[in-house]
């Protein structure tokens, strides 16, 4: 029984052309996309629409940061949408006043971290495939959420979350500022810290990581915990954006965040890519969806485009690796 990862390791070094090609490719693609959309539909570049798009980027971007860690570690995290919805349900589970914000934050983070721990434990200690492990935790969490809300959540989102999720300061949304702070913090951790290097080595080649004395299991588990915690934060931000919470807040974010990451050059075979790329991926996705609506095209096209993009982006990066 040859392990696939071993087989991949023997295929020779994955010589990446990414470093030579892509630093400007994604931003340029984004700018071109915005320009074309603006020409086709002038309403696209209106202040309110741009502000609206920025508001939508933030929750997705926060999830993508966590997803980036997991995907660089050769995994993927499907449970993010379930964590988001659970955090959002928790947000309305209290009195709806600002005094409860801290307890909500702690409980939501606790659920996110616990989910991440279970995911990481299943993936490392039990060798469950990341897909199945995170799918199972997603379902279990969903079941608990439904049981907790009895199918119909009620209550209000605290004003502070409403402010962070949907208000702007001189046109710049607060949730965008939160995204920037989180992106810088986790970007530095990933790119500059010892832990970040361990993430790349573990994801790039687990055998090498072991030989270098890296505790690959621990690194992987922390990766899933980061993803779970950020998903919880994104869920709270999104609850502030939509204002009303149902059981499905964040539905589709698991797929969107993976699409954004893959589009941003974070290879599903691990060890490659960075947070900035993933965020550009998220921005491109939001712009495309927005354009589909503004052009008066059927909403269903969004789903079809999403499907095509994920396959083509994956294929594009697979080709380039070889």
């Amino acid at each position: 029984m040859v392990d696939v990862s071993q087989a991949r390791a023997t295929e020779g070094p994955a010589i990446s052309m990414k470093s030579r090609l892509s630093p400007y490719a994604l931003p340029m693609f984004l700018i071109a996309l915005i320009a074309v959309s603006g020409i086709v539909s002038p309403a696209f570049l209106s202040t309110s629409n741009i502000s609206n798009m920025l508001l939508q980027v933030a929750p997705l971007g926060i999830v993508v940061i966590g997803q980036a860690f997991v995907i660089i570690l050769r995994g993927l995290d499907l449970s993010v949408s379930s964590v988001m919805a659970t955090a959002a349900v928790i947000a309305t589970g209290f009195s709806g006043q600002n005094s409860d914000v801290l307890s909500i934050l702690l409980i939501a983070l606790g659920i996110g971290i616990a989910t991440g721990l279970v995911n990481g434990w299943l993936v490392t200690k039990r060798s469950v495939s990341p897909f199945l492990a995170t799918l199972a935790t997603m379902i279990v969490l969903q079941g608990f959420r439904f049981a907790y809300t009895q199918g119909a959540p009620s209550g209000n989102v605290p004003p502070l979350f409403r402010l962070i999720g949907s208000a702007t300061w001189h046109g710049v949304p607060y949730n965008m500022m939160l995204l920037v702070v989180l992106a810088i913090v986790f970007g530095v951790v990933l790119a500059k810290s010892r832990f970040g290097r361990e993430v790349y080595i573990t994801g790039g080649n687990p055998t090498t990581a072991r030989l270098l004395g890296i505790n690959a299991d621990r690194v992987t588990i922390i990766g899933y915990v980061i993803s779970g915690a950020l998903a919880a934060i994104a869920g709270l931000v999104l609850s502030g954006y939509v204002g009303i919470v149902d059981n499905w807040v964040g539905r589709g974010f698991e797929l969107d965040s993976i699409v954004a990451a893959v589009m941003g050059g974070i290879s599903l075979s691990g060890g490659q890519g960075g947070i900035l790329g993933g965020l550009f991926g998220a921005a491109i996705l939001v712009v495309v969806f927005n354009a589909v609506l503004l052009f008066g095209l059927p909403v269903q096209l969004q789903i079809i485009i999403k499907g095509l993009v994920i396959v083509l982006a994956a294929a594009f990066y697979v080709r380039r690796r070889i």
Partner: peptide
């Protein structure tokens, strides 16, 4: 709701 939980736990 609990049937959902049961199914997830069985998979795990």
């Amino acid at each position: 709701h609990y049937q959902l939980i049961a199914q997830g736990l069985i998979v795990i």
